[in-house]
């Protein structure tokens, strides 16, 4: 097996490449570890704290059980309000998303002077998390579901418009050409050429966003934007962990149910 050593030397130069590779990899690792250490110094997050902190977590969980079932009737109303917020937010956001999605799609709006700024606005809207929107709107419109709804309007608008314009760009161009050939104007083109193809996707994204929004709406109350989160905030402020746990449990149950229902409808659509 070790008979033909003489040949190996001829290939020596090629083994320089792996050496450089190795240094590169080592450097990457060192950089990564350095960043991690810097991060943990900055936030004073150390494995030691983790070990100390976790038992406290355990005692908190202990206080959460058993949940305060008698509190259930009180939280039904706010829970329903949460769903109302999600429905209204998703719907208005979805409706606003339609014209913007049409304007963003290159195949419907070939004029880049319109479509590119539209996309930039969309990207900008999507950088802001829903809770930030909610915090700002609460400050403007006061505590209550309206601020929460507005936050979700912006949030859903960003998601739905992005997903929908990507779906529109992927549609079959054949029907569009056919419509143009029979002399349709832009509105007719959209109604007869685009709508039938893009609608199932739009509805599917709408429902998906609704699922996300129900989760979001359940925490919006933490910053005062209505829904069940207000009660959760109050329960936590009063150290009533048994109440907090029943709120969390109910929210999880509702979220799971809505996820399931919406997943069933979405599967039927696509």
């Amino acid at each position: 097996m070790r008979s033909s050593l003489s040949q190996t030397s001829a290939h020596q130069p090629s083994s320089n490449a792996p050496l450089i590779d190795r240094y590169k990899r080592l450097a990457t690792w060192l950089l990564f570890i350095f960043v991690l250490i810097a991060c943990s110094i900055r936030t004073e997050v150390t494995p030691y704290q983790l070990v100390v902190g976790l038992p406290q977590m355990g005692s908190l969980l202990q206080e959460m059980f058993p949940p305060d079932w008698s509190y259930l009737p009180t939280i039904w109303g706010p829970m329903l309000e949460t769903i109302q917020i999600a429905i209204m937010g998703t719907t208005i956001g979805g409706l606003l998303a339609i014209p913007v999605a049409l304007l963003c799609a290159y195949n419907l709006t070939p004029n880049r002077w319109i479509s590119i700024p539209m996309r930039m606005i969309l990207n900008l809207v999507r950088t802001i998390p829903d809770l930030l929107f909610a915090a700002v709107f609460v400050a403007i419109f006061g505590i209550g579901p309206f601020a929460g709804m507005l936050a979700l309007v912006f949030f859903s608008f960003g998601i739905i418009a992005k997903l929908t314009f990507e779906a529109i760009e992927a549609i079959d161009p054949g029907p569009l050409e056919a419509m143009t050939a029979v002399g349709a104007n832009r509105i007719q083109l959209i109604i007869f050429g685009v709508m039938p193809q893009a609608l199932p996707y739009f509805v599917s994204y709408f429902l998906y966003t609704f699922e996300v929004n129900v989760r979001a709406a359940s925490v919006l109350g933490l910053v005062g934007a209505g829904g069940i989160g207000l009660l959760l905030d109050r329960a936590l402020g009063l150290f009533r962990y048994d109440r907090a746990s029943i709120i969390i449990l109910l929210t999880l149950a509702i979220v799971l149910m809505i996820d399931y229902g919406s997943a069933v409808i979405r599967r039927k659509l696509l």
């Binding site: 900055r42 936030t43 004073e44 704290q49 983790l50 977590m57 908190l60 979001a216 359940s218 799971l256």
Partner: peptide
């Protein structure tokens, strides 16, 4: 996955006190 992170954050704040540590967890 169904636990929103903000709720997880609140629970950790209650457990380990407010600050970055709760956020990281």
């Amino acid at each position: 996955r169904v636990f929103p992170e903000i709720i997880v954050a609140i629970l950790f704040i209650k457990a380990v006190g407010p600050g970055s540590f709760a956020g990281v967890l």
